[in-house]
Design a protein around this nucleic acid. Structure first.
Length: 214
DNA sequence: AACGTGACGGTTGAA
DNA sequence: TCTTCAACCGTCACG
């Protein structure tokens, strides 16, 4: 029934049982039963979250691979072992092997990235807030984008840390109670930010392409 | 056959 | 204390 297959999220589709075990490398059935259904592949761990991938490797969805496996991947690659072999031997998906090796090449680190949390909000440093207050006091009719330009021109911020127009607007709303700049609506702010992002993207595209991991 | 990539369901932790 | 949300994760399937 194709309708059924379509209604099941891709990741949950039972392709696993069909593909496993694969030829080309020796795999024991982790459950000692070749006829187990996909849903039987969920492994019991203290947290009940362990799963088994198509290669028979255990992983926890949403969590990084343990450090020793990551280390092993890099070590094997160092010895000239091809990623596909590493993938099969360690029973880690080739996508993951590729990602870890790629990151290692770029950063020199085997560690996963920082998970969770929020980025510190730009433009909310007390110093910048004080400047915004000053600008607004001197010229109450000033637009957020004008304030942004002035922050750059006065050297308070540079292109990397200057707050966004909407961030400035937000700061003003919280500082001055009502709306920051009456005439400027959200749509206008959004449009300006898009324009700015577009401009930046065009400037940096070459750098990005140059750095791309192959 | 090998591998780069994006969608996906998931976890995490600062705000 | 609870909720939100954007960061990251590994797997899977496609090309």
């Amino acid at each position: 029934m194709t309708a059924l297959a379509g209604s099941i999220p891709r990741m949950m589709r039972p392709t696993l049982a069909q593909n496993y075990p694969r030829s080309g490398f020796p795999l024991e059935d982790p459950f000692g039963d070749s006829f187990v259904s996909y849903f039987d592949y969920i492994v019991s761990t203290p947290l009940g979250q362990g799963r088994v991938n198509q290669l028979g490797g255990v992983f926890i969805n949403g969590r990084p691979l343990p450090n020793h496996i990551r280390h092993k991947i890099v070590e094997m690659a160092h010895h000239g072992i091809r990623p596909c072999v590493i993938s099969r031997q360690l029973r880690v998906s080739h996508g993951c092997v590729s990602k870890i090796l790629c990151r290692y090449q770029e950063t020199g680190s085997i560690r996963p990235g920082a998970i969770g949390g929020s980025k510190p909000k730009q433009g909310t440093t007390p110093d910048v807030e004080k400047r915004i207050e000053e600008y607004k006091r001197e010229n109450p009719g000033m637009f957020s984008w004008e304030i942004r330009d002035k922050l750059l021109k006065d050297g308070i911020c540079d292109r990397n840390n200057v707050p966004s127009v909407s961030s400035i607007s937000r700061t003003m709303r919280s500082k001055f109670g009502g709306k920051g700049d009456e005439e400027e609506d959200e749509e206008e702010i959004e449009r300006k930010e898009l324009e700015e992002n577009d401009r930046r993207a065009k400037h940096s595209i070459e750098g990005i392409l140059g750095d791309r991991c192959e």
